[in-house]
Nucleic acid binder design. Structure first.
Lengths: 257, 257
DNA sequence: CGTGGATTTGAATCACCTCAAAGGTCGTGG
DNA sequence: CCACGACCTTTGAGGTGATTCAAATCCACG
């Protein structure tokens, strides 16, 4: 019983059954979003469901031939790029319903590595079939491009974070980002389990592990959060939003000034 | 005569004529890439060519309704996002033939602002028509997705740069990136004119202006580069590649180890 | 030729990093 | 069930690369 019942990862839709997009509880968040039933069936036909991959295992590796994109069904992964000196930079964490691998679209091989943070199941979508289907189903094509657009905006927000924010602002932004993503999935926005280690967080945020730890402690002393290992409770989300520099949504608001 | 003949920006294809994709010298780099002649004509039909925008003018602004994507015909622009505290983070510089605005695809308004770094002409592609055409021309759809994939990989490289590289490595990476992009366009890889100010470079690289200036002088003292205002000559590209941590191409190589 | 902005240079400061070590946690096997 | 070891997390002390502040110099442009 390592994960308490509050943990989002403990809820695994479709475990043990042969899953289909039509019956998947994530289809309103995932690629089938906005697809008609008949279209969803065609997408469903090309999707391959593999056995779970264990914590620490790779889904694909930087440099391998680009063959498929993946949707996370349960669990969580991190994706990272390798610098030539061997250092890794985590570019994203991926929770259930999120799509991985589209960034390799143009290239013939994956530009990054995907590693499971815990036991994870994914839906594999082979590129050739997806490509064909994208030409035949306008809704799917739009959804793919929307996904890529979202990824670009995420990465550009990270550039701003890495370039302009201090340690506390980075951690606050990170916690709220995770919070929002869990909320979208119907979980608590304030009480959840971080699937990644402190080291992963520090790498992602461009800080030293020790700094993450110190900021967490400081946030606890100021009663902004409570932590117990990977479990975390956001106690003062307003203050965190303030600190993160996110009044509500950072982009796409009418500017009036 | 502010720009010498070596300057890439001094060569303006199609100036003064009513331009078309079919005759544009950039069509092998731009969106029409890999389009059949008949398809290119259909794309050409929906493209609007406006009057030049002057240095400092905005092409579009964060928060405005998302209506069009743009291809740079001549000149250069920067795109940047605004943090809630008003600070701007430059997310990219855009030279001739490059596409701007696709990152807004999902959203209903532009997630960033585009400002001209010099007098610039663009081709405007209204979204509704582009969207329709993308459903009808598989090659165009693929090209759009390739462009977005390239953008994602660029941004993820920037994340690595901002998170892991020191000032010298950042500047070296930046100079080589610009160099490669000019080279693709048929200009010198070692002798070119930087269209952006030092302030813009510093913002983009997540450093203070003073740091950029100091690194430039250090590079000059070590005979890696020569600078004369915005003109720059790369004297020792091997050393710069070494320093940037780019042996050749950073991603997408077979890893053997 | 003068003005305002951009660039360069210098000196002092600081936020975060590195190094070092103590505590915790988790999985494993006796 | 408990002990062990490996790894992760936390805390402390000291160092540093880049920043900030200040000022001189250069440059484009009217």
């Amino acid at each position: 019983m390592k994960t308490p019942s509050t943990s989002p990862t403990s809820s695994t839709p479709l475990r043990g059954t042969q899953p289909h997009c039509q019956t998947c509880s994530l289809n309103a968040l995932c690629l089938p979003l906005s697809l008609k039933d008949t279209d969803m069936e065609r997408l469903d036909d090309i999707i391959r469901r593999g056995r779970p991959i264990q914590k620490g295992q790779l889904l694909f590796q930087q440099g391998e031939t680009f063959q498929s994109v993946f949707a996370v069904r349960t669990g969580a992964l991190k994706t990272y790029t390798l610098a030539s000196n061997g250092e890794e930079q985590i570019t994203g964490f991926h929770l259930a319903s999120e799509l991985i691998g589209l960034s390799g679209y143009e290239a013939d091989c994956y530009p990054l590595t995907a590693k499971a943070l815990e036991t994870t199941t994914v839906c594999e979508i082979p590129l050739p079939q997806l490509d064909t289907l994208a030409d035949e189903l306008p809704d799917l094509r739009k959804q793919l491009m929307r996904t890529m657009g979202t990824e670009i905006r995420h990465d550009q927000n990270m550039m701003l974070l890495l370039s302009k924010k201090n340690a506390e602002e980075r951690v606050a932004s990170f916690l709220l980002d995770i919070s929002q993503r869990y909320q979208r999935r119907g979980f608590s926005a304030s009480h959840f389990r971080l699937p990644m280690s402190r080291v992963d967080i520090s790498n992602y945020l461009g800080l030293a592990v020790e700094t993450i730890s110190r900021v967490f402690t400081r946030f606890q002393n100021n009663e902004l959060i409570e932590t117990q290992g990977k479990e975390i409770i956001l106690r003062d989300m307003d203050a965190l939003y303030e600190m993160a520099g996110l009044v509500s949504s950072t982009h796409c608001e009418k500017h009036d000034e």
